[in-house]
Amino acid sequence: MKITAIARNTFKEAKRDRVLYLLFFFAAICLLFSRFLALLTVGDRVKIIKDVGLASIQLFGMLMAILMGTGLVYKEIDKKTIFTLLAKPIHRVEFLLGKFLGLVLTIFIMTVLMAIIFLLILFLHTFTIEWSILLAILYIFFELCLMTAVALLFSTFTTPILASLYSLGFYLIGHLSWSLEMLIKKVKSGAGRAILRLLYIVLPDLENFNFKTEVVHHLPIPTKLLGISFFYGLVYTAFLLILSMLIFRRRDFI
């Protein structure tokens, strides 16, 4: 009950944030632009629409998660609204979870809206609806949930600008860390390899959520892989939230 009250208020706050609409506006432009880009393409035009469309949803969703997520806790502390909130009989954990769920709800609605525009553009071009596209979007949403947890983690101890930079760093590392796996295979077994393996386990691998290529090229996706990716997202998000709670639990609000 308390968590939902905080989540509802967070959603209300996010709804009134202009950044959200600005990002949504640019996302819509990018989605429309994919149609024009297709006109310039030689060959499979639908592929271009799908590629650019999915990438736009991912990019702008990520920006929404980071830019809004990093301000979440900081704003409450900076504006001192947290004083009366935490003076109520609520756990700090409930506060943090409420904030997270409120933003996840916002991101969900935004992803749905972007997906509707995207599917509409695709439909106008092909006159068919490919439901497999939704699978790729669903996994983009899982990635965005994880990114929200990342932004929330950084916002519990630093300013929004630094938290945004850290989150962006996390995102880039997350999309490049798969190359570590290749490196591990090439390094001789020993201390170096062990360190690389440890690094690969600790660092996020956001490519786990990337099913864009498979969906665009109609490649088969093993159900097991979908299950593993979902589980990976769940565990990593939970890990980030627990870390945020540990930091937030003992924090002084001066």
Binding site: M1, K2, A5, R8, N9, E13, R16, K80, F83, T84
Partner: peptide
Amino acid sequence: PENPYFYDYLTGREFLTFYADLL
């Protein structure tokens, strides 16, 4: 609190409703 700061995007009634939900 001293110099109370509250969610300025809420109306007085919405604000009290939010806190009542928390309680």
